[in-house]
Design a protein around this nucleic acid. Structure first.
Length: 733
DNA sequence: TACTGTAAAGTTTTT
DNA sequence: CTTTACAGTA
């Protein structure tokens, strides 16, 4: 039965769905039903037009978006089809293509994927052997990424030397590239770049995939970079059926090489392209939309859209200035509690520019007993123990992966220390060989110390055994079990018998579960490793979480009835690094626009008048974000007296929890807190306490008074600790 | 070789 | 403040 599109779509949406052949640009404003259009477009093609699902390719940026689209399409399509449409992220699409085709470029099909940490490790080693210890590896990494995303080769680095350091960067960059080739490894940028290179060198291959994917859709087109743009160009060449969806006002990845010009120039690139604007917003109140629109109107680089909505006016935007981050967080907490009293299941997001801002919020939320979920920071797959075990699996598949091998060569300790690894390094350099070859070389070298040789030979046997198991196609869970047994990894953790070691063991159990779940979906070991390499922070997000904390970047594509944007101070948002460049400020402004338009009904904007950097003694006085002044005043309800002109002296020492003016509401909550949570000086010997890191314990002794008191606490799992009351985050237990 | 303690550095946003 | 790197010692 054909899908009745008219019942689900407005006029513009319907036009976008029904325009299937040729090039199509859909300019979809925030909340205008973009995902709905893409989903129905796929359904329409398959169900109403009889297009084969496997000839449809939809590309997104995040796994989350891809999964969501897959689910929605699958739900509405009749069961029993031969295949699904290809819906995936740019990166996983490239991995799938390269796993089949990369041998044409001289790599092995089992290439490793290096993440940012791996890159830094490689660069650090290269710098060390070049004697350039003073340069920071992270800087080099970001410069290399900058160059790669703009198609600048190592040799051309000096020509493009926008910065003095770039000539040196060029040299490291060249070494870096050959090192990755020796390791049979690609970094994230390479995944895209090498696919494009493949298509350029082998037009037949490009044409083959172009023929296969006759209908192409790209989500968030404003965030595509040079390589992604070229990739789509190659795939669309045979037929020109390409539909890109995006919003130039939501382009927020310029720093990562995204070129807003790609969407602005789409009509030039595809001269017979049709353009459809989706301007009706279904998400936000009139007030929120008007405020966001007024802000983004300050940007010059726009195609221009006029969003409108039939939604009600809604309440004004609430603005609050705290004295410091603690005060700001207390305000947010109080408003969250108030909302939950009216509506226990309310979904609330707290958004910030930089990850470290979550710390104060988390601390205060815990004191208010507000459960929350932080999205970002480190994900499951970034935990040391998980990375360790995954490294064993990766090494079993590709022993040339020297980053993974280097990580596990002495983890857990097996007698391969500095001296031995130094010997390996110089052997590898002398023979232009990989770490793996060096291990064999030194183990067989009768001139090397017998102890090292024994340890290395044992390690080599271990990896070879694991590789043999992997080659047999043994279940991933089973291989994990072998790793744990043969290395004694979990046994070592069990010996530690600490709370932390216990949670690490739990994490490994979780890893085994993930492997088993993957296996049941039919994933191979290789697939499992690829997925682990490509998961993002957003993927761990539980949509049902009541209170979610995340960066503004992560929030893109999501919506919440209530949204807080915190830390609205110049230098923080817009970020100090962007403030000097008009283009960069425009991108920050778009980011603010993205944040505001996440809100459906209630939007709170907050800042702190003083903020500490690195926990310094005195908190620096802040200036209110310039973006706040771009909101029409009549849309805003100020909940505190703006007083940024106050003398700095008043802010000294930061937030004490006493003696400041604020709204009655915050004060009452703070008072409650003061009654329930004793001030830090109030502990008595014998009191049971809980520490964020050490867990449960008992206070044994106290020296001094108040905040300066030094406590001696006996923790159940960490033994005796001496703590200073002011800094220790102790709670009564 | 492995562990412990002290010094220094660090915070932009992410597939 | 927190985390990481490195040096010195068992």
């Amino acid at each position: 039965m054909p899908i009745a599109l008219e019942r689900h779509l407005n006029t513009s949406q319907l036009k976008a769905v029904e325009t299937v052949d040729g090039a199509l640009l859909v300019l979809a404003g925030a909340g205008s039903g973009k995902t709905r259009v893409i989903t129905y477009r796929v359904l329409h093609m398959i169900d109403n037009l009889g297009i084969r699902p496997e000839s449809i390719l939809a590309v997104t940026f995040t796994n989350k978006a891809a999964d969501q689209m897959k689910t929605r399409v699958r739900e509405r399509l009749p069961a029993g089809r031969s295949a699904d449409p290809w819906i995936s992220t740019f990166h996983s699409l490239c991995v799938r293509l390269l796993r089949r085709e990369i041998e044409a470029l001289g790599y092995g099909r089992d290439f490793a994927i290096y993440d940012a940490d791996d890159q830094v490790k490689v660069i650090r080693e290269l710098l060390k052997s070049a004697g350039m210890d003073s340069v920071k590896p992270r800087r080099i990494q970001s410069r290399i990424g900058w160059a790669k995303n703009r198609g600048i080769a190592p040799g051309a680095m000096a020509d493009h030397a926008f910065r003095a350091e770039d000539e040196a960067v060029g040299r490291v960059y060249a070494d870096y590239e050959s090192r990755l080739r020796a390791d049979n490894a690609l970094d994230f940028d390479d995944l895209l770049i090498k696919t494009v290179e493949l298509f350029e060198k082998f037009p037949d291959t490009a044409a083959r995939y172009g023929e296969r994917f006759r209908y192409i859709m790209v989500d968030e087109y404003q965030d595509t970079n040079r390589a992604q743009y070229a990739l789509i160009g190659h795939l669309a060449r045979p037929h020109g059926n390409v539909c890109v969806v995006g919003d130039e006002d939501q382009s927020i990845y310029g720093w990562r090489g995204a070129e807003i010009q790609n969407i602005l120039d789409f009509e030039k690139d595809y001269p017979d392209a049709r353009t459809i604007r989706l301007e009706q917003n279904y998400r936000s109140t009139r007030t929120i939309l008007a405020a966001a629109g007024a802000v983004v109107a300050h940007n010059r680089m726009r195609k221009g859209k006029q969003l409108w909505t039939e939604n009600p006016q809604g309440s004004k935007i609430r603005y609050f200035e705290g004295h410091d981050p603690g005060h700001e967080a207390a305000f947010v907490s109080e408003r969250i509690l108030r909302r939950r009293r009216r509506e226990p299941d309310a979904r609330i997001a707290v958004l910030y520019r930089t990850n470290f801002l979550s710390r104060t919020l988390e601390e205060v939320f815990r004191r208010f007993d507000i459960p929350y979920q932080v999205v970002g920071g480190f994900s499951f797959y970034e935990r040391a123990e998980v990375k360790d075990i995954l490294s064993y699996l990766a090494a079993a598949v590709n022993p040339r992966d020297s980053v993974r091998l280097g990580r596990i060569i002495n983890t857990p300790p097996r007698g391969i220390g500095r001296t031995t690894t130094d010997a390996l390094q110089s052997w590898a350099r002398a023979h232009h060989a990989s770490l793996w070859d060096a291990i064999a070389g030194v183990a067989d070298d009768s001139a090397a110390p017998a102890r090292s040789r024994r340890a290395l030979a044992a390690f080599r046997t271990l990896i070879e055994e694991l590789a043999a198991s992997a080659a047999e196609g043994i279940r991933t869970v089973e291989l994990i079990r072998q790793v744990i047994e043969k290395t004694g990894y979990v046994a070592a953790l069990e010996d530690e018998a600490t709370e932390e070691a216990g949670s690490r063991i739990d994490n490994l159990r979780e890893l085994a579960n993930a492997a088993e779940e993957g296996a049941q979906r039919g994933e191979s070991l290789r697939d499992f490793l690829d997925n682990a390499a490509l998961v993002s922070d957003q993927d761990a997000w539980d949509e049902n979480a009541r209170v979610t904390l995340m960066t503004l970047h992560t929030a893109k594509g999501l919506e919440f009835p209530t949204v807080f944007i915190v830390g609205l101070e110049d230098g923080l948002f817009p970020h100090a690094r962007s403030i000097d460049d008009d283009g960069d400020v425009e991108e920050e402004r778009r980011l603010f626009y993205v944040g505001m338009t996440r809100a459906q009904e209630r939007l709170y904007l907050t800042c702190a008048r003083a903020r500490r950097v690195f926990g310094s003694e005195d908190a620096a006085v802040t200036a209110v974000s310039r973006f706040l002044r771009e909101i029409p005043p009549d849309l805003v309800d100020a909940l505190s007296e703006p007083s940024f002109s106050e003398p700095a002296a008043r802010m000294r020492g930061g937030y004490t929890g006493r003696s400041y003016d604020t709204t009655e509401a915050v004060r009452s909550v703070l008072d409650t807190r003061a009654r329930t949570a004793p001030r830090s000086g109030a502990w008595k010997p014998g009191a049971k306490v809980r520490h964020a890191k050490f867990g449960l314990g008992t206070v044994l002794g106290i020296v001094g008074e108040g905040d300066d008191a030094k406590l001696t606490v006996s923790f159940n799992n960490h033994g005796l600790k001496k703590l200073i009351a002011k800094y220790a985050t102790l709670e009564p237990a």
